[in-house]
Design a protein around this nucleic acid. Structure first.
Lengths: 141, 141
DNA sequence: TTGAATGCAAAGGATTTGCATAGAG
DNA sequence: CTCTATGCAAATCCTTTGCATTCAA
């Protein structure tokens, strides 16, 4: 079962309704390697000739977030982006030139730092967000 | 010379004008240990009975950012926050309970991770942003 | 005097809400 | 049939812009 079907079946199994918009938004995420904004999703659906209102997209994103299927991430931008809630721990590489966003997986690299924050500041870390800003391979040429 | 005076004198020396609003916004930053939003600054000025328009605050924040005196940071929130451009490398501890934001300084802890991103993904890292979400000391009680 | 800073009103862009209707199960 | 999802318009919130006026140097 592909990952979009997996999510869709999971939702159905938990008694949620499956609509065209919901299905297609989930597919948009499973087929994208980078975080998507509401506008980006609207654009993807428009290209597939699936007419959807932006209100629906915003509401669907909120729904998927409450279901922990996607999560919100926010860069130094005006608008929010969303991405599939990662099983592995992902971080972002944001190109300051072309604005492209790539992912990198760093599983236990921050464990030590987190432990230090925990003891030094008595702050109980639940999660962290780490983004790298710089120049991507293509823009370096 | 205190740190606000230091910034103010630096600006004057580089030929920038010094107005009441500018001076007080700089002071708001040097006297705060956590990042400030435009609304928060407006509130601080209002309490000091310094009448200022929000437009001025937004414009001033933009100005201070171009002068590299402050920098923008954005959490999973709707509105932007700004903080003094740090000499040392700061990160944030964001309490998911009381929303308080504290800072932590981690100078070279990410060097190794950055190096790996650089070689693995051929991404030239210029800077990074790292935030920890969790429960602060006070909220753990 | 002169260009930068200010205030106000209005515009903008992203996101949310109210309400009536359509559609999934 | 019932309750959720949808579309549309309007509202909200944060931020920016245009323009005439004030003010620092």
């Amino acid at each position: 079962m592909s990952s979009d079907e997996h999510i869709i079946e999971g939702l159905k199994a938990s008694g949620q309704r499956m609509t065209l918009a919901r299905r297609e938004i989930i597919r948009a995420f499973t087929h994208s390697s980078s975080p998507l904004s509401a506008v980006a999703i609207l654009e993807i659906l428009r290209k597939k000739e699936i007419l959807t209102n932006k209100t629906t997209v915003y509401r669907e994103l909120k729904f998927l977030a409450t279901q922990k299927i996607v999560r919100v991430i926010q860069f130094d931008e005006r608008n929010r982006r969303y991405e599939l809630s990662p099983g592995e721990h992902r971080h972002h590489l944001i190109c300051t030139n072309c604005k492209r966003i790539d992912d990198v997986i760093l599983n236990h690299d921050l464990d030590e730092v987190e432990a230090r924050v925990q003891t030094q500041k008595r702050f109980k870390v639940e999660r962290h967000a780490l983004e790298f800003y710089g120049v991507c391979e293509m823009c370096q040429e």
